[in-house]
């Protein structure tokens, strides 16, 4: 039983750790783009990549200040959003989806390519750029702290604290925007662009604003992940993370301010709990060794999560915070 409680504690830690912040910020951006504006961004991880490398390259390779790196990362995300949006936002929604998914994969391959090695250090990645950030912690980052039965390193705690503050500020911004007339126009664009055009709104500008804002959230997520792990390697930014963020958003409820955040926490908790819980059950002999071994757990947990998501879509398609009537409207 003690092992099981430990497993639970580990999962709770994952649900509030910086990895969950990373996922929450990605999902927050996707919520702005997909949930409110109806833009299909299937390459959110590309924004995280340029955000993370903005800091990593600026600080480690160019010797700039940490905050200059943050500014460069954010600027790169805005530029990427503009580049993706300029040609595709006048077209149908599918074109943005195609462009973003290709860009996400292309950028990762570019960053790990040999020709980019002088700047990005190839597939080995860059490290040693987060000391300027960790130093700012008001507590001793070298020590370990016991919180809720799990040990946190001071640095992890600091990154998570800053991360959740960013998430809270992001939620506040999204909340302020979507209740305003600006949010009304954006939601209307999701429903029918032409109707909005016929009422005198410049749809292109609104879509671009939503895309840029969502991209900036993605970049912030990438930055938190980079300073949390202390390194940036291209293969950390696999596009599977984008779809994990979509899963988090749908679990929490799309087009709800807190949907992506709670979804991300819960999803990370479930992923970790499926892992540590199964392990503890095997180790204590509740699950017989012949049925499942600890080496199978890494694979089987995603099977369980996939099953859970299917059940969610069948029985609660609106997610945790969604409105069922709203989701079912077009399903006639």
């Amino acid at each position: 039983m003690g092992e099981f409680i430990d497993a639970l504690a580990i999962a709770v830690k994952a649900g509030i750790g910086f990895q969950a912040v990373f996922l929450a910020l990605l999902a927050l951006g996707i919520n702005m783009q997909f949930g409110y504006a109806g833009l299909l961004n299937f390459g959110q991880i590309a924004f995280a990549l340029v955000g993370a490398y903005g800091i990593a390259v600026s600080v480690s390779q160019w010797g700039l200040n940490f905050w200059a790196g943050v500014a460069i990362g954010l600027a790169a995300a805005v530029a990427l959003a503009l580049l993706l949006g300029l040609p595709t936002l006048r077209l149908r929604a599918d074109y943005l989806a195609i462009a973003t998914i290709a860009t996400a994969e292309g950028l990762r391959l570019l960053f790990r390519s040999v020709s980019a090695t002088p700047v990005t250090n190839g597939s080995r990645g860059i490290s040693g750029f987060n000391s300027g950030f960790v130093e700012l912690a008001p507590w001793d980052t070298g020590r370990r702290y016991d919180i809720l039965g799990v040990r946190w390193s001071g640095a992890d705690l600091w990154v998570a604290a800053v991360g959740w503050t960013l998430v809270a500020l992001g939620c506040l911004l999204v909340w302020a925007l979507v209740r305003s007339p600006w949010g009304r126009v954006v939601k209307s664009i999701r429903e029918d662009e032409d109707a909005v055009r016929a009422l005198g709104k410049n749809v292109y500008v609104y879509k671009m604003q939503a895309l840029v804002l969502g991209g900036v959230f993605g970049a912030l997520g990438g930055m938190i992940y980079a300073v949390g792990t202390g390194s940036a390697t291209p293969d950390q930014y696999q596009n599977a993370n984008t779809f994990l963020a979509y899963a988090a958003l749908i679990l929490g409820g799309a087009a709800r301010v807190l949907g992506p955040v709670v979804g991300a926490m819960l999803l990370y908790f479930i992923i970790q709990f499926a892992d540590s819980g199964l392990r503890s059950l095997i180790e204590t002999g509740v699950i017989p060794e012949g049925l499942l071994t600890t080496t199978d757990v890494a694979q089987i947990r995603f099977v369980l999560i996939g099953l859970g998501l299917i059940l969610l879509l069948v029985f609660r398609p609106q997610g945790i915070f969604g409105d069922r009537r709203e989701v079912m409207l077009d399903a006639r």
Binding site: P181, D194, A195
Partner: peptide, 30 residues
């Protein structure tokens, strides 16, 4: 082209012209 997942009143309000709150920055100041 009714905007399905907006309420009837929100549909109507969208039609109004020259709304100050429809620009990104002033939307943040109610």
């Amino acid at each position: 082209k009714a905007l399905s997942r907006l309420t009837v009143l929100q549909n109507m309000l969208l039609g109004a012209q020259g709304q100050k709150g429809e620009s990104f920055l002033s939307a943040l100041v109610p």
